[in-house]
Design a protein around this nucleic acid. Structure first.
Lengths: 155, 155
DNA sequence: GCACCTCCTGGGCATCCTGTACAGACCCTA
DNA sequence: TAGGGTCTGTACAGGATGCCCAGGAGGTGC
């Protein structure tokens, strides 16, 4: 979809202060309410804005440890592994990838010790041949899309 | 923070239909509006719910390719690398990790060809010694926290 | 130059929600 | 048994939402 500067500013505004609502947003952007409303609807329909779901912080829930695990899968066991990992709540994300390893998943745990339990559960399946884990120490750039939005609106 | 079943149901409900508002949520949960409102406030203050920002889909913005790059950093160049990567809009996320490599970052690009440009920009810094990239093919489990929320509410 | 189309504007209207407050009921704990 | 914390039901004022419409501005094709 195509985005212009107004769309980007709208997204940015809502990202910074989601509670302000359409009316207040339109005021701050200096456009009519109908315009802001129409833009928002366009972005929603176009799939750019997937929704306004609550962002949950795993750390605040008691899972301050994050790790990435690279998994090597036995040929033809992909579906089974996917199902297995989807059933583990500590698996926040799963990708199939090129390069070394076949899958990459993001895990959280209550502690480094607890991470061992999670990993045991993750790799406790025949389909998984080998795994290597990288524990996250710092997170200098938390998941973000705003710079990308601005970038996409530039031309 | 401690979460109970009602909190979990509230989060789940808002995740599924963010637009319903507190009143409708309280109706569906079978509790008084004040209760739902108090719970939500508690979750917000407690940091469990970071906010209700719009979820932007990079693919819909024209960046359908995702990749993970593992970077090896020259000793003492960490800060410089962090700053550099924070300035690249296609870098959605950056972690410092243990194990092979020193940093892991998530990238998006307009195409596989465009990914080359992004990677060139990412590694175009003296502080980065080596890098290896894994392109995401499939995403069987998109970023999620609901199962974790339910899990945390269980006891 | 003109007709046309799209988008934005500014206004209005009815409905509904939000934020806040308070008294009473309930439950668990000290 | 008293006290603290939580939930309920209710009330009120202010404001936002969703929807609609007529008019104007800007760009496009003929």
């Amino acid at each position: 979809m195509t985005i212009d500067a107004l769309d980007a500013r709208l997204i940015e505004l809502l990202a910074r202060e989601p509670r302000i609502g359409v009316l207040e947003a339109s005021r701050r952007l200096g456009v009519a309410r109908g315009t802001a409303q129409a833009r928002l609807e366009k972005l929603r329909v176009g799939g750019v804005i997937r929704g306004f779901g609550p962002e949950v912080d795993p750390a605040a829930l008691g899972f301050p440890v994050t790790a990435f695990a690279t998994l090597e899968i036995k040929q033809g066991q992909g579906d089974e592994v996917r199902r297995h990992l989807a059933g583990v709540p500590e698996v926040l994300e799963l990708h199939t990838i090129t390069g070394e390893g076949d899958m990459l998943c993001r895990l959280v745990a209550r502690s480094n010790a607890d991470l061992q339990r999670v990993i045991d559960r993750v790799v406790g399946l025949d389909g998984i041949v080998r795994s290597s884990t990288a524990i996250v120490m710092e997170n200098p750039v938390p998941l973000r899309t705003l710079p990308l939005v601005r970038h996409a609106a530039a031309p």
